[in-house]
Simulated scan of single mutants.
Amino acid sequence: MAIPTGFGRAGSAARKIRLGLALLMFCLSAAPTVRADDTRFHIFTENYPPYNVSKTGKNFAHKREDIGGICPEMVEALMANTPYKYEMKMRDWSFAYRWVKEHKNHALFCTARTDEREDQFQWVGPLASIRWTLFAAPDSDIQLNSLEDAKGLKIAGYKGDVMTDYLLSKGYDVTTTVTDEQNPRRLVLGQVDLWVTDGLVGPMVAKENGDITGLRPVLVFRETPMYLAVSNKTDPAVVAKLQAGLDKARKDGTIDAIKKHYGIGN
């Protein structure tokens, strides 16, 4: 029995459709898979209120939710505008500083950007700024008109701190501790004459470590912008995306809102 011509044409069309679908599926399976960026950042900071604050009551933290303050919120805002996952930890500054420099996709905040550090990192920022301040005890009669006036005085600082390192490099008499927590007590006990720290940080650290109040800021001798310092081993194209993420957060008002919340101005 002959097959009607119309049925034959329909069968041929169906076969063509099946062949076309099969070819399409083959092409899709052979095409390279487009995946989300799986770059993961390891971001470190230190306990340095109000810029970075430990919520654990200790000088270290293993999770983002245990870290508060101005700079963590800014870093979180910039990372939200990138395709990258990240983890945030709080560690001793000198350890974190060395560790980040040696590892790809690692970063450290808030890091003062100075001439001495310029080539050691790639920089994303600025985030905030620190005011290099010399504090005296409440009952001290020390008066300073310039940094030169501090020559011959004993100054408290801490290991790895940019202000401490600067004074040491200039020949000032600075005694260092591992963290800044002991320095307010050393100051009021008369073990040192001055304490070098940030203008906002000093009173907070003193209050939280010994309930010390009334420290006298006798000289502000420098102001330095602070950045997210990214390891030089990191792809510069990735760093550019981090900067773009911060720029977007600044443009949409997020960074200004964080500053306003903490009362640090522009």
Rank of each mutant, 00 (worst) to 15 (best):
V205M: 00
L228I: 01
Q191P: 00
M226D: 01
W195H: 10
G199T: 13
K251Y: 03
L189P: 02
A257E: 11
P225C: 03
F221Q: 03
N183K: 07
K251C: 04
K241N: 12
D193V: 07
R250I: 05
G245H: 04
E208C: 04
A237E: 15
T213Q: 07
A244S: 14
A206C: 01
A240N: 10
E208A: 08
V178R: 13
L246R: 01
V218G: 02
M226N: 03
D256P: 05
F221M: 07
A229D: 00
N183Y: 02
T213E: 15
G199L: 13
L215T: 13
E223N: 13
G245F: 06
E181V: 07
L187T: 10
V239H: 02
G214K: 09
G253H: 13
G210I: 00
D198H: 06
K207N: 14
D256R: 15
S231N: 02
L242Y: 02
Q182W: 06
D193E: 01
P225A: 05
V201T: 10
K207G: 09
V192C: 05
A237S: 12
L215G: 06
L242E: 05
P225K: 02
L246D: 02
G210N: 05
T234A: 11
K248T: 14
F221T: 10
V196H: 01
D211N: 15
L228M: 05
G199A: 12
K248V: 13
D198T: 10
D247W: 03
P217R: 08
A240I: 13
G202H: 02
P203D: 02
V220S: 13
R250T: 13
V239K: 09
V220T: 14
Y227H: 04
S231Y: 01
A229I: 04
T224F: 01
R186I: 00
R216P: 07
G190E: 10
Q191V: 10
T234E: 08
R216S: 11
R216A: 07
Q243A: 12
N209A: 09
A249D: 07
S231D: 00
A237N: 14
K248D: 08
W195P: 08
T234H: 06
D247P: 03
E181C: 01
D256V: 08
V201W: 01
A240W: 11
T254P: 11
M226E: 01
R222F: 10
L189T: 08
T213S: 09
D198E: 07
T176I: 15
D193W: 07
A237W: 09
D198N: 14
V230H: 03
D193G: 05
D256G: 13
M204F: 05
K251R: 05
M226Q: 00
R222W: 10
L215P: 09
L189G: 03
G202M: 00
N232A: 13
E208W: 12
S231I: 03
G214M: 12
G190H: 07
R185P: 03
T254L: 12
D235Q: 14
D247V: 03
R250N: 09
T213R: 08
V239E: 01
R185Q: 14
K207V: 06
K251Q: 09
L242H: 04
Q182L: 09
P217E: 05
V196R: 04
I255M: 08
V220F: 07
L215A: 11
P236N: 15
V220W: 06
V239L: 07
G199D: 11
K251A: 15
K251G: 03
N232C: 12
